[in-house]
Design a protein around this nucleic acid. Structure first.
Lengths: 239, 239
DNA sequence: CAATATTTGTTCGTATGTATG
DNA sequence: GCATACATACGAACAAATATT
C-alpha cells in the first residue's frame, strides 16, 4: 500500500513540494529547512527519499547543506533592482531594446567542482556568487551567476554589494583590467529554477553561455554562467 | 567495521577509478560501462555505492545512463570555434577529432523569403540547397543545410556532388576564399527530423546557428542553417 | 511479435562515521 | 561530553525500461 500506480517518483514530488514552499516564500533565503527526519515524517517516506529530493534541490542551486547543521535555502526569487553588466548590454541596445538588470542575490559559499576547475582554485575554496537576471523591455531574457574566488579577490563580496557593476567591483579589489578568456555556448533544457526566473516552462530550450574572465597575469577572476531564454534571444556575432 | 580511518569516501574513489579508465581510453566514447552489478562485484561494494559514483560521473557529463540499457561513456563535447572563418574540417581536426560529413540531399529550388534576404537575391531566385550531417568520430553532432545562389555560383550543384566539403565546392566555382559575415545563435528543441538524423530524442536541446558567408567582395555566397546537438557540441568564441 | 532476461530506477530498512551546536 | 543532523555504506525488494531470445 506504500506503492501505488504512481508515475512520478516520490522524491520528485517532494522536491517539487519543497521548491514550491521556497517559491511561495514559506522558507526564505537563509532559512533552515526542517531536518531530514522531520521531512521524512512530514511526507511519510524514508529519510533516503527525502535526501534524494534534497540533493536534487542542491544540484539546482536552490538549497545548500552543511553537515551537522542542516539544509538552508540558498536563493530566493526576490527582485532587487540594482546593477548592470557588460558584454550583452551592448547587444541589447544595438537590438533597440531596453536592457535592465536585477540582482537576485549575492552569496558566499564553497566552490563546486566545475567552478573550482574554471577558476583554478581548490574544490571547496570559498567563492562569492552574484546571481542576477537580465531583462529586455521588462521581459526576462537571461539568468546569470558570476562566481568570484574570494581568496584571490579579498573584499569582492562587499565590493559587489557596493557597486553597480562587476567592472567597478573588480576595480575596487585591484583588478583594473580583465579580459574574457573564452566563451562557451551550448544548448540545454530549462529546469524549474530557470523556468521560474525566466518566466517560461520547464523543458524549454536555453542557450547556455559560460565564460572565464582573467586578469593581466592570466589568473581567472570570474567564472560566469548565463542562461538565455532560447526563444527570446538570438546572439549575433559579426555582421 | 567496514570503514577504516579513510578520508576519502569509497564512492569518490570508485568515481576516480572509472574516470581514470575513461581518461586512459579503456572505455571510449559510446562504450557501455559494466553493469552496476558487475561494478559492485569488481569494487567489492554495494550497488548503491556504485550508483553514487556513477551519478557523480553523470553530473560531470562524462557518462550518461539509459534505464534498462546501461551506462555509457558520453562523447566529450566537441569544441567548435566560431569566428570569421569557419571551417568544419579544420575545426574538428584542431580539436583532435575525426571529422566526417554525410550528404543527405542536394536539391535545386526557389529561394524563400529569409533565404533571399540573407543572400541578397530576389525572392524566387534559384538556389541550390545542400542538406548534410556533420559527424565527429562517427557520432552525429550537427544537421545543416547550406543554401547557395545558383545565379551567383554557376555549377555549384555539380561541384557539391563531386566534393565532400563546402570549401572545395566553392573553390571549384571560383570562390577561393570566404568569410563569415554574421552568425545568429539561439536554442531550440529537436523535432522528429532532427532527432532521427542526430540520433537523439525529440525535445532535446539544439543550438541553432544561422549564418551568411561572403566572398572577398562582400557578396553572400552561402546561407547556412545548422542545428548542433546541444549536449555534444560547445561553440567557443575567442580564447 | 511475444515472452523472457537484463539493467537501471526507486523505495524501504539498518548501521556507523563525523561535523555541528 | 553530549545530542543533533548530515554523510556514507550495506542489504533487500520491486518497478520500469530496455535488450534478447
Amino acid at each position: 500500500m506504500t506503492q501505488g500506480p504512481k508515475r512520478t517518483p516520490v522524491w520528485q514530488s517532494i522536491a517539487n513540494a519543497l521548491r514550491g514552499d521556497i517559491a511561495e516564500a514559506r522558507y526564505v533565503q537563509g532559512d533552515k529547512l526542517p531536518t531530514e527526519a522531520a521531512l521524512s515524517k512530514r511526507f511519510g517516506v524514508n529519510r533516503h527519499t527525502v535526501r534524494h529530493a534534497l540533493s536534487q534541490l542542491v544540484e539546482e542551486g536552490l538549497v545548500h547543506k552543511r553537515r551537522g547543521a542542516g539544509a538552508f535555502v540558498a536563493a530566493r526569487p526576490t527582485d532587487y533592482a540594482i546593477g548592470k553588466r557588460v558584454r550583452f548590454h551592448e547587444n541589447l541596445l544595438a537590438a533597440g531594446r531596453h536592457p535592465e538588470k536585477r540582482m537576485l542575490q549575492i552569496e558566499t559559499r564553497l566552490a563546486d567542482g566545475s567552478e573550482a576547475a574554471a577558476l583554478q582554485i581548490a574544490e571547496g575554496a570559498q567563492v562569492c556568487v552574484y546571481h542576477g537576471l537580465s531583462l529586455a523591455d521588462g521581459q526576462p531574457i537571461a539568468l546569470f551567476e558570476s562566481v568570484f574566488p574570494t581568496d584571490r579577490l579579498p573584499g569582492i563580496a562587499q565590493a559587489l554589494e557596493q557597486h553597480r557593476g562587476v567592472t567597478d567591483a573588480l576595480a575596487d579589489v585591484g583588478i583594473i583590467d580583465y579580459t574574457r578568456a573564452s566563451t562557451r555556448l551550448t544548448a540545454v533544457l530549462a529546469n524549474q529554477i530557470h523556468a521560474m526566473h525566466l518566466q517560461l516552462r520547464e523543458g524549454d530550450p536555453l542557450l547556455k553561455s559560460t565564460g572565464v574572465n582573467v586578469d593581466g597575469t592570466g589568473a581567472p577572476v570570474e567564472f560566469g554562467r548565463t542562461f538565455f531564454a532560447g526563444d527570446r534571444v538570438t546572439l549575433t556575432l559579426g555582421g
